[in-house]
Amino acid sequence: MNIKSWHTDKKPWIIAGPCSIETEAQFDDTVGQLVKNGIKTIRGGVWKPRTRPNSFEGVGEVAFPWIKAAKKKYNVDFAIEVASAEHVELALKNEIDILWIGARTTVNPFNVQEIAEALRGVKDVPILVKNPINPDLNLWIGALERLHDVGIEKIGAIHRGFSTYQESLYRNIPLWQIPLDLKSRFPELLLINDPSHIAGKRSLLFEIAQKAMNLQFDGLIIESHRNPDEAWSDAAQQLTPDALDDFIKNLEIRNPGFPNSSFQNQLDQIRDEIDETDKELLEVIARRFDLVKQVGNYKKDKNVAIFQLERWQKILAERPEWGKKLNLSPDFVKSLYQEIHDESIRIQTDIFNKK
């Protein structure tokens, strides 16, 4: 997939607007305030895929005349989510400038292919693809490939976090390595962060957006409403236009490269130390798994079950506390040992399976 760079405006590209277009007055007032604060690309939900039935699912086609009026009045581009070929047809008919495919749609290749076919031959409308709700990089890439294969040239990706059954600080856990892996494979791909859907609450929005800027994301798509507390959907994660303006002004935009050769040389020295430390770290992990193999052989000889709940509970209780004394995040340590435990189970299972 040969993706070309296409968005040349100043970074970060800010796309902002209400989660849902609710009424003509609400939409016009919100857009007017956003434009006054310098926002040039507006987002808004026309159709809202909801997790549970009988909740607000958007006003639908009723919103298109309001969008046309706002586009003409404020001279802005407008972006909406599409989830079917019918949505694509209506969006293009009503001169929508940017389309995005949501996380619940990206997860279904049949739906994405249907949308891709509806877009065949469309050249000037950017198509942005949110990550699937589950952490599957290949599924995300597959959606981008389907659009690329029908001739879409202006393609971008939106990182909105991933659903999890585990308790989390976030509405959707970021799993930053997944979008970074995507960017590594396709360096010219436009990559936008959606702090609203990762955070789920206003108090976390800034730290997520700032981290995206630290990681060289190309832009942010963020929800803003004239009165968030009265919003018909996602009230807790929306900002007023003025709060969003302060939010953006406080973001620190990082340089894409190094300011001088001296800085580069110093950074290279630190990275050399990191490389050596990583070698030592891997050697320690290898030694640990050698011990795991000894345990596996002993359990097999004594006909003892692989999984020992009491031992695993002891590790989960002790290791985060050990990490805390070393200024390591307990959540990180717990996550690390869950990975180590999974690999230990796999190693011991292989030992049991050998005749």
Rank of each mutant, 00 (worst) to 15 (best):
I221T: 02
I221D: 00
E223K: 01
S224E: 05
S224V: 04
S224R: 01
S224P: 04
H225W: 00
R226C: 14
R226I: 15
P228D: 07
D229S: 15
A231I: 02
A235K: 03
A235M: 01
A235V: 03
A236Y: 01
Q238N: 07
T240N: 09
P241E: 01
D242E: 15
D242H: 10
L244Y: 08
D245N: 15
D246V: 04
F247D: 03
K249Q: 15
K249F: 03
N250H: 14
L251Q: 02
I253L: 09
R254H: 13
R254L: 13
R254I: 13
N255L: 13
F258N: 07
N260E: 03
S261P: 01
S261T: 10
S261D: 09
F263Q: 06
F263R: 03
Q264T: 12
Q266K: 13
Q266H: 08
D268I: 08
Q269L: 11
Q269W: 03
Q269T: 06
I270N: 08
I270D: 07
E273I: 06
D275L: 12
E276S: 10
E276L: 15
D278H: 09
K279P: 00
K279E: 15
E280V: 06
E280P: 00
L282R: 09
V284G: 03
V284Y: 05
I285S: 05
I285H: 02
A286L: 05
R288T: 07
F289S: 04
F289Y: 15
F289I: 04
